[in-house]
Amino acid sequence: MNASVYRTAVLIAGLLIGLTILPHFLKYHQQDFLIFLTINILVVVSYRLVTLTGEWSLIHAVMMGVGAYTSALLSKNFDISFWITLPLAGVAAGTMAALLSYPLFRMTQFYFLIGSFATGEAIRLCWIQFIKPFGGTGGISAIPSPELLDIDFLEPIPYFYLVLIIVTICVFLLYRIEKSRIGLTLHAVHWKGVLAESVGVNTWNYRALAFIVGSLFVGIAGALKVHYIGTVAPKQFDIGFMVFILIWVIVGGYRTFYGAMLGAVVLSVLDEFLREVNQLRPAIYGITLIFFILYLSGGLERLPQKIGSIFRMRKQGNT
């Protein structure tokens, strides 16, 4: 056990050090890309917490928007510092999730999927409709960037370090939650719901809890994103982005913690290379998605296993 913990620790430390020096070797737009990628990692990891209980929600992107709008409105209209609005963004998204959990968790499976989609879309349309605080289709622009000492957070490299630190903390917390007693109960709710209930687990509470905590963290991710871009608009959190989250998690593999991250990283990097064929991008995503769901339903994390089993089959064929 000690050996494996040691190995994991070295791996993570190496990864973090690598990420710390990486931006200095990149071009300007690649640094931008790295910031978004880091934020997206938090998005998928928090989404995984929601899916742990077996419910696939389609409202996660909108929850990110709730955090983003909260932080943007507070810092722009009330001059509140980024360092206060950032946690508040998480609290706002978590509160919204807590309120929505009453209607949403009366449904399961297919109904939950459609219900969460409808609720999310209704919230998003409210941002478009009520121009007074939310700014309509154009959204809110000129969102102030964080202030700390004399660091210029408009530059990508300082902002990247900020994002890296916050995302690392959040991902670590999410990891601890999943490995804790609560996380194990969430697994139980998914795979053995009735059995879990029979030993006294309130499944409704745990499903709602996963939803609220997941939303809280994605709200923080939303705030991180818009304080860098400087604008927030309803289009950033539409069903298209939600589908991307879904694709990252499915292609990476939703059964393990690192699978989802792997999906986000691999597909985002792939996406960077597809910049040339901008129009074709969605179709390539679509084909990838179909391919994975049909032939590699465990996701990328299962790839080594799959290849291994093919080789074994070959060997057996020869003998």
């Binding site: 696939w56 499976q109 297919f110 999927l113 589908v243 879904l246 499915i250 129009q279 074709l280 969605p282 179709a283 995503y285 679509g286 084909i287 990838t288 998605l289 179909i290 769901i293 049909l294 339903s297």
Partner: peptide, 23 residues
């Protein structure tokens, strides 16, 4: 092929959605 996996069918159809939009 996705007969026993309703979520799989749904996700496949999302893939088709993207492809048709691009076409």
């Amino acid at each position: 092929p996705m007969m026993n996996d309703p979520l799989g069918g749904l996700i496949c159809s999302i893939g088709v959605l993207f492809i048709l939009q691009v076409i």
